[in-house]
């Protein structure tokens, strides 16, 4: 059962930044927030409903970046023609998140800020070399996914900061995203992408350990699925033991690399 709390509904970003803090949490889809509140893991006195701030719900191109407002839902990202054109992989991944209710209501910002370790978005955004944009009433900063995600349910975001946007460099890397998902959350997710800048071969492994891991190389030959799998620390749960999740990781790494080498591209 939910405790007692108030809700504020700012219509401008500035108002929202004044409100947000330790006891006053951002509220988008509420798909994670209300579960956590019902379990009394979070007991905020106030919720800041951000859905009335149009600027946080925009998707736009800005120079060599695709900028996705933190309040964009999975469905909106999946069906946006701009995203599909510029970052097809992201579009494909968001279309496969959880179930239709979660996709209709859950946002990219909520997904990243909650930092549930089995997030698909964290994994794919890591592979795509995305940055998150944080803002507070005293300033702005940009962090990489690795800098942002510190552990399960733990990010570098300060209580008075809002995640305002996610920026994906374009042209975005392309590739495949494979996951083994037997229940509501994936057990293991692996994405293999080729990118124009930096090391061309990028492999991200998520959902299986505390935070997603990135491996990069000049050539796909440099990846050894068995040793990559041996190097992760799976979190055992009802969807798999440590041994099984390591095995799945190895299987998916092999499949993802084979697929991307064969020219397959999601989205």
């Amino acid at each position: 059962m939910l405790g007692t709390f108030t809700v504020s509904r700012p219509t401008e970003l500035g108002q929202a930044l004044d409100l947000i803090g330790e006891e006053s949490l951002a509220y988008w889809g509420g798909t994670e927030l209300f579960l956590a509140m019902k379990m009394q893991l979070l007991m905020p006195g106030n919720l800041v409903d951000l859905k009335g701030i149009p600027q946080l719900r925009e998707i736009r191109m800005s120079g060599d970046e695709l900028v996705i407002g933190a309040g964009t839902t999975h469905d909106e990202i999946a069906t946006d023609p701009g995203v599909r054109g510029a970052a097809g992989l992201l579009s494909s991944v968001t279309s496969r998140v959880g179930n239709s209710r979660v996709r209709a209501q859950g946002t990219i910002g909520g997904n990243l800020c909650f930092a549930e370790p089995r997030s698909d978005l964290a994994t794919v955004l890591l592979a795509l070399d995305a940055m998150v944009q944080l803002q507070s009433s005293s300033g702005e900063r940009r962090l990489s996914i690795t800098e942002f995600l510190l552990g399960p349910y733990w990010t570098a975001r300060e209580p008075e900061e809002l995640l305002v946007a996610v920026c994906v460099p374009i042209p975005a890397a392309t590739g495949v995203y494979l996951k083994f998902q037997f229940t509501e959350r994936p057990s293991v997710a692996v994405t293999a992408v080729v990118s124009d800048g930096g090391q061309p071969c990028r492999l991200a492994i998520g959902a299986v350990a505390d935070v997603p891991a990135l491996h990069t190389a000049e050539s796909w030959d440099e990846f050894d699925a068995a040793s990559i799998a041996a190097g992760i620390e799976p979190v055992p749960d009802l969807t798999g033991s440590v041994t099984y999740k390591r095995h799945l990781t190895e299987v998916l790494v092999k499949k993802a690399i084979a697929a991307v080498r064969a020219g397959e591209r999601d989205g």
Partner: peptide, 17 residues
Amino acid sequence: LTPERVWRLMNDLPEED
């Protein structure tokens, strides 16, 4: 017969780690 259970069975692995 969850995926892990079947996988363990087909590989003659014990039921749990």
